[in-house]
Simulated scan of single mutants.
Amino acid sequence: MPRFSTPQKRLLAAMLFYKQEGLCAYCRKFIRLSYWPPDRIRHDAATIEHLRRRADGGKDTFDNTCLVCRQCNVGRGVVDWLTYCSWIRKEF
């Protein structure tokens, strides 16, 4: 399956930002949606995350993506999204 193009990514990010009310899907902190390059390296920068990683057979579909802050995106690594979400919210 082809990956998202840049216009598709921007539309997807905007839709997810609205759907998630501007909050990271994992830690529930506010995220910054910006296309300005210096903003994209901030810890609270919005990044598109695949819930089921492509390496594990996940698809590039709307229902397999969410917006997370850069800090959570980097921190998740190879952990399952639900496990990481519970861990980061201190639900264990």
Rank of each mutant, 00 (worst) to 15 (best):
V68A: 15
I88K: 13
T83M: 09
T6L: 12
R10E: 10
T6Q: 13
E91V: 08
W81E: 13
C72F: 09
I31Y: 02
D44K: 03
E21H: 14
L12H: 05
K9I: 06
R89A: 01
R52Y: 04
H50V: 01
G75D: 05
C27V: 08
Q8V: 09
Q71V: 14
A46N: 04
H43G: 14
F4E: 02
T6G: 07
K9P: 01
D39W: 08
E21G: 01
G75S: 02
F62L: 10
Y26V: 08
Y84P: 01
A14S: 14
F30T: 14
L23D: 00
S86L: 14
R89N: 14
F30S: 15
R52W: 06
N73H: 13
M15C: 11
V74S: 08
K29Y: 07
D80L: 01
V74K: 12
A13V: 08
Q20W: 06
P37Y: 04
C85P: 04
R40S: 12
R42Q: 11
L51W: 08
G58R: 01
D44N: 15
A25W: 15
G22M: 06
D63K: 03
R53L: 10
L51V: 12
D56W: 04
G77Y: 05
Q71C: 11
K29M: 10
G57Q: 08
R52A: 05
W81S: 11
E49K: 07
Q20C: 06
A46Y: 03
D56I: 07
D44Q: 03
L51D: 03
V74D: 07
F17H: 10
G77R: 05
R89T: 13
E91Y: 09
R89I: 11
C66Q: 15
I41F: 05
F30Y: 12
G75E: 04
L12A: 10
K19P: 05
